[in-house]
Computed example of a mutant assay.
Amino acid sequence: MKDLIFTCCAFSFLALSTLNCNSITNTVSDSIYMDYDHHKVPYKLYAPDEKYLLHYDLEEISGLSVFGADHLLAVEDEQGYVYVLKAENGEVERKIKFAKGGDYEGIEAIGNRVYIVKSNGDVFSFEISDNDEVEAEEVDTDFSSGNDIEGLSVSGEKLLLACKGKGEIEDNKVKGKAVYEYDPKEKKVAGKPLFNLKEEEIEAFIENRKFFNKIHSFDPSAIAVHPLTSDIYWLSADKVLVVLSPDYKLKEVVRLDGGIYRQPEGICFAGDGTMYLSSEGDGARGRIFKISYKSY
Rank of each mutant, 00 (worst) to 15 (best):
F143H: 04
D219M: 09
A222Y: 02
I202N: 01
L161R: 09
E150F: 04
S236E: 12
E199G: 03
P193L: 00
K175N: 14
A237Y: 07
K192N: 03
V225F: 07
D231M: 09
I206L: 11
I206A: 05
A224C: 15
V243K: 12
K251W: 04
D130C: 09
E181L: 08
V154G: 06
K175R: 13
E207A: 08
E133N: 07
E207I: 08
A178F: 10
S145C: 08
E200F: 01
S230P: 04
P227G: 06
K158F: 01
R255L: 09
D140Q: 15
I232G: 01
Y233L: 11
K249Y: 03
P227L: 03
Y180T: 08
K251T: 03
N147Y: 00
K177V: 10
A178V: 08
A204W: 00
S221N: 06
E207V: 11
R255Y: 14
V179Q: 04
K249M: 03
I215D: 04
E200T: 12
V139F: 06
L241W: 02
K185H: 10
E150D: 08
N196M: 07
V154Q: 13
A190I: 01
E170W: 14
K158E: 07
K166R: 15
S144E: 13
E186Y: 00
F212T: 11
H216F: 04
V242A: 10
K187H: 05
K173F: 10
E199C: 02
S245L: 09
P193H: 06
V189F: 00
L244V: 14
E181P: 01
T229Y: 10
D142V: 13
E170I: 07
L197N: 13
H216P: 03
F211Q: 03
D238W: 08
P220Y: 05
E157P: 01
Y180W: 12
E168M: 12
K198F: 14
N131V: 00
L194G: 02
N196Y: 07
S153E: 13
N196F: 08
E157F: 06
V179R: 02
E200Y: 07
Y248R: 09
Y248L: 03
Y248Q: 05
V174S: 12
E137V: 15
K192Q: 10
K249F: 02
D183M: 10
K177C: 06
V139E: 05
